[in-house]
């Protein structure tokens, strides 16, 4: 990663990335065309990746782009295109109805307040930044395949089961 010792540039990059993320996330909810919502989701994912990069967590940022922006959102768009059966302009459920927007907005505001309160009130452990913290890949590998290997492998098996289940759901079971 590039080291920015000057705080102002660092802050400017964060503000830009966070601004793009928040605007795109709002777009996901507010666009009337669901394709636009899905594409805003891609932008939001990219914004989050930019924040990861800025925090020197390059590996997480790259995986965010590869998995979320590159694969998951593509599958979402794909699914939307395959099942869409009305004009694209009236596909996103929330937008035109004021009552739903109001209800959703209230719930979101409550959740956001709770989240901010939780973040502000919790006593965060001060992690010491290791020397050579640039090597996030090695650190993550040691954690995932060392300390937490059982949980990691359990998650892998869970995913495998999910994949097999999805194939059976999609193809159906042959009755003999």
């Amino acid at each position: 990663m590039i080291e920015f010792s000057g705080l102002s540039l660092y802050d400017a990059v964060f503000t830009a990335a966070a601004g793009v993320t928040v605007t795109a996330a709002l777009g996901v909810v507010l666009f009337r065309n669901i394709i636009y919502s899905a594409l805003s989701l891609v932008l939001a994912f990219l914004g989050v990746a930019a924040i990861y990069f800025q925090l020197n967590a390059g590996f997480l940022g790259v995986i965010q782009i590869l998995v979320y922006a590159g694969a998951i959102s593509v599958l979402i768009i794909f699914a939307i295109m395959l099942v869409m059966n009305r004009p694209a302009g009236r596909t996103n459920l929330t937008s035109p109805r004021t009552r739903e927007v109001f209800t959703g907005g209230t719930i979101t505001a409550m959740m956001l307040t709770a989240l901010i309160a939780a973040i502000g009130l919790s006593d965060w452990p001060k992690t010491v930044l290791l020397k050579g913290a640039d090597d996030t890949v090695g650190m993550l590998a040691e954690l995932m395949l060392g300390d937490y290997v059982v949980a990691f492998e359990a998650a892998a098996i869970l995913l495998l089961v999910a994949v097999v289940g999805a194939i059976i759901l999609a193809k159906g079971v042959e009755n003999k």
Binding site: G58, I63, I65, L66, A71, S73, V74, D134, V137
Partner: peptide, 21 residues
């Protein structure tokens, strides 16, 4: 970049979205 190879692969995966658009 110390994760250059991974960066290349992940950026390459984004071109799918452009074609879809």
């Amino acid at each position: 970049l110390n994760i250059g190879l991974l960066f290349f692969i992940s950026i390459g995966s984004l071109s799918t979205i452009a074609l879809l658009m």
